[in-house]
Design a protein around this nucleic acid. Structure first.
Lengths: 205, 205
DNA sequence: CGGCTGTTGTGATATCGGTCACATTGTATC
DNA sequence: GATACAATGTGACCGATATCACAACAGCCG
């Protein structure tokens, strides 16, 4: 696979080293990639597919934090790999997904040797940290209607489509809400001409 | 000031370099150290005092994310400094505070040269990231009564006292709630024998 | 003391969102 | 078409919390 195109900033030496040492892994849609409390032994770069990162509540509820797309990396796995500790999140493949796993032993070395890797790691931390902050914003300052709008927009951005193929139940789960609430809010959005509702599909207008 | 005791893991060369290049700054209690949107030109290490890190909503509301104590560093300032971008948070000195400001130009160099600095930065990222995750937990999965308990416990831990010298209004602001709600919840906690209420002071039992 | 100001207590009311019960509709399968 | 199942619509109800109005109280200063 021509994965280098996803990371154009990487230096040739870095690419070669990763090619030698990293392991590629595949996950089917719906498969759990990482579970809360699990030990992390490699940093993960996304080559293909989409990953959902969840936080789990004690009561069994799930809460979607953000997505990871090809060309991005899991900040949590990086931090955990470097420190050999456990993760506090759950990662699920939303589509069939290919990951490049960088063994933990390599991390310090890459960090010291390759400026482009160092920059990449810092960049990854920053964008995940910012996303986490905007998640806090959302639940701290916004009602469910605004959070739903944000959710739909983000989903549309991610898939680059105007149509969102999700059931109301799936959306409710991601927002840690209930199906009826989401249905009602979507109806209101339809009345305000923001969306058109179909079965298993929401169309943004 | 004998600041090295706060960072016992730092190598001698690192300490010396910081001593030469870093600038110490003082802030009075209540002073704003960093404002949303402000440009960051140094990473901040806390030497003395307490800093509150807030996220601001559009409507003017504030939301307390976490505290920084002596021996800790501001992850946001580090990331922003390395990337020369703006912060998305507000930092306020809760007590009179002393900071050690590491100029941005030094960051890459320290990172490459001193293993103990590299470890410190990674450790800082990780703990702030985890704290942010537990903030998400709190507001996503818990009602105000549990959040209030968490808030009081955290405050007591921070000050290492059983008594919390805050008005109900201040607590409400930090939790982005309203004074009446906090008063009522505190009353309930008092009835359950968890606290004793006084004027401008709450006593944990 | 009397008045001012900030803190806390309390009831009434409104809204949002969660939950339950059940109806309706769309799609697939036989 | 008949059946079954999943998705969606809808009304009733309730608890959590925000908001308003106002009372009670404590501390400070003239």
């Amino acid at each position: 696979m021509n994965w280098q195109a996803l990371f154009p900033q990487f230096e040739p030496g870095l690419i070669k080293l990763i090619e030698q040492e990293a392991v590629q892994r595949s996950f089917k849609a719906g498969e759990v990639i990482m579970r809360t409390g699990q030990y992390i032994k490699s940093a993960a770069l996304v080559l293909k597919g989409q990953i959902k990162i969840y936080r789990e509540g004690q009561d069994g509820g799930e809460f979607l934090i953000y997505y990871l797309a090809p060309g991005q990396a899991c900040a949590v796995s990086m931090i955990c790999a470097i420190q050999s500790t456990t993760s506090e999140i759950t990662a699920i493949a939303e589509e069939d997904t290919e990951l490049l796993m960088i063994p933990v032993q390599l991390m310090d070395d890459l960090m010291n040797t390759y400026k482009s890797w160092y920059q990449f790691v810092i960049q990854t931390y920053r964008s995940r940290f910012d996303e986490l902050l905007s998640v806090v914003d959302n639940i701290a300052f916004h009602n469910m209607d605004e959070r739903l709008e944000f959710y739909l927009k983000r989903y549309a951005d991610k898939t680059e489509k105007r149509s969102i193929e999700l059931s109301h139940q799936q959306i409710a789960d991601d927002l840690n809400s209930s199906r009826e609430v989401i249905s009602r809010l979507l109806k209101k959005m339809e009345q305000r001409n923001m969306v058109k509702l179909h079965r298993n599909m929401i169309e943004l207008v």
